[in-house]
Design a protein around this nucleic acid. Structure first.
Lengths: 347, 347
DNA sequence: CTTCTTAATGACAGCGCTGTCATTTGTCAA
DNA sequence: TTGACAAATGACAGCGCTGTCATTAAGAAG
């Protein structure tokens, strides 16, 4: 039963109803300009014939699309998948389509994708971070659609921004470890993208302020972070300085790896060693011991970014172009502080 | 220094070079039809003027695009992000653009997205699984582009297929636990999408074959799987039957949660309890004890799917429309078998 | 009854590109 | 020299839709 359906177009619907093509177009795009009886007949015919508009023709004729372009550096990273979930969540039911671009942490790829995207006349753009290249910035400024930079904060958004200060968050996490009594606090970093670097900055400052800074406590790599890498980096850190008593990891994968490595080496967490992660993935709460982390509102970030875009597309005014979603130290047993004479915490 | 660049189009380039528009078009699409000197002049002008073709116009005029549409049920699931990595990897440098659709495990959303996609005249489509609805199948059959169904295997591909038998894999994992000496083997399942269900089928068969089947050993939920959920489901299983001595988890998040829960309850893994996960995420190898899992070639799956698409787009013949990527039980200490008198394994 | 508004609909061109011819030029064999 | 043919280039229409008027009808105001 092969059904040879030739493509139904606008004029076919118009003909079937006995109106002009433009009227059908209006029913679809600006129904308030069409009288009720005509509108109903058109809607019926659209459904009956199974008409679906051609997005290419629409884009060409109207110089606009329903595409929201999203540029993120990784599709495998937990952080960005959470942001994506927020984005998809918020866009559900709205007449927009998400087009995802994966820059793979490459400036060149970001430029290329921005070129591809901006030629598509997107309805809006979301890009990651605030460290775009000059060419990317030029492309963004030229694209006449609303733009949200996500993940970070800054004084000079291209258009709008929603994120948090990774510097402050790194600072706060380090302060937390200091306040719990740890004195030789290491830093484990992977990938070392701009956000990671800012967390390192925050760590460095907090350490200097406390007079605890020591370059040898910092272990970083350009490799992508994994749990396994967390084990390796912790081993590296321990071999470099034998008196380390805590570690701030730039994400939770590394932190979990650090915990696993501690378990293997029979290093007691938190008694002999404190561990703090970053992002507060759900698994942190159920590890043994539960791991302290810095909660970031990643889904909310995605949702807010979409909201800002659609508000702007609808021509509504934006209350603030830069939205700070903040962070929160979620304190768990892994940073309860070094062993004390007076009390022994239950494992 | 605001540069007011009006959009450069094909005719602008043609004019600059002193050729006709169609010649410029040919330089871009079929350079072998243009003489070398003209080609070079056009290429130079394209670069100098910064011309980028308009995809909408191209799509409208040629009834084809460079879009590869990908439909997956989740962007947050580790499994699909690995597939995506393979896809993006393989497509790099090729003149195609990935358009990602997130069906959120919803048949209706899949139908809707297929409608949206197929109107865009994609160059190829990748869809997840083999359980499409009748309407989705109709849309797929009508779309005249190559299609790859990924993740699973089956006798009747819409066009092409690459994946593995989740039934066989579930069967093999269960057999493995049996062979290691476990006798009361539980099953933890979340989401219960078609792939998960097939793993459960495999488990059930293996259990029946061994005369070990017991409905009370099966704990499932529709909720999305998380590490925390692994803890909860294991607790549920333990409360239901007190003599369980192993568990097959439909993915590694659940398995890790199960391990964490065992640690908390001071249940010795593998001596008193065996744990087998599914997918073999990298973290499995560094947990304590390292966790046995079923390795699936997820990145390879993405890569192969793209290769099959581009081969078909190029008009090359496909050797086999259904590619079995198989699986492998990666045996680690978590399933070393119940405690034996003769030897005590090191923790 | 005329003029003015407003609401509803239509005619038409054209968005930027490519498919399909047609035309021009050069080459070579007869 | 001529014709046949291939290579290179161009003219033109049109892909399916919407922006921008113009037109008509129906009521409101004077």
């Amino acid at each position: 039963m092969v059904e040879l359906k030739k493509k139904i177009k606008l004029t076919d619907v118009a003909e079937a109803v006995g109106v002009s093509a433009i009227t059908v177009s209006r029913v679809l795009r600006t129904p308030e300009l069409v009288s009720e009886p005509v509108r109903l007949r058109v809607v019926e015919a659209v459904a009956r014939l199974g008409y679906v508009p051609d997005p290419a023709a629409r884009a060409l004729a109207s110089a606009r699309t329903d595409v929201l372009g999203i540029l993120i550096p990784s599709v495998t990273n937990n952080v960005f998948s959470a942001v994506l979930r927020g984005i998809y969540d918020r866009v559900e039911g709205l007449p927009f389509n998400i087009q995802l671009g994966n820059t793979r942490y490459s400036v060149l790829e970001e430029e290329r994708l921005l070129g591809v995207f901006s030629r598509q006349r997107p309805a809006g753009l979301i890009v990651t971070g605030r460290d775009q290249s000059a060419r990317s910035l030029a492309l963004l400024r030229q694209a006449d659609c609303p733009i949200v930079q996500i993940m970070e904060l800054g004084d000079e958004p291209v258009d709008m921004m929603v994120g948090l200060s990774h510097r402050d968050a790194g600072h706060a996490a380090t302060r937390h470890l200091q306040e719990r009594g740890y004195r030789r606090i290491g830093f484990l970093g992977a990938r070392m993208d701009p956000r990671t670097q800012r967390r390192l900055e925050g760590y460095g400052e907090a350490q200097k302020e406390a007079g605890l800074h020591d370059e040898r406590l910092i272990v970083t790599t350009r490799r992508a972070s994994t749990v396994t890498l967390g084990c390796e980096l912790l081993s590296e850190l321990l071999s470099r300085s034998h008196d380390v008593d805590a570690v701030f990891c730039i994400n939770d994968d590394l932190a979990l790896g650090a915990l696993f490595e501690c378990q293997r080496r029979r290093i007691a967490v938190p008694d002999d060693f404190g561990i703090c992660g970053f992002n507060d993935l759900e698994m942190m709460a159920v590890a043994n011991p539960p791991l302290t982390s810095v909660r970031t509102n990643r889904e909310e970030m995605g949702r807010r970014a979409i909201e800002m875009l659609i508000a702007r597309i609808a021509g509504e005014p934006i209350e603030a172009p830069v939205v700070d979603l903040g962070y929160e130290i979620v304190e768990r047993r892994s940073t309860a502080g070094p062993r004390r004479r007076e009390a022994l915490l239950p494992t």
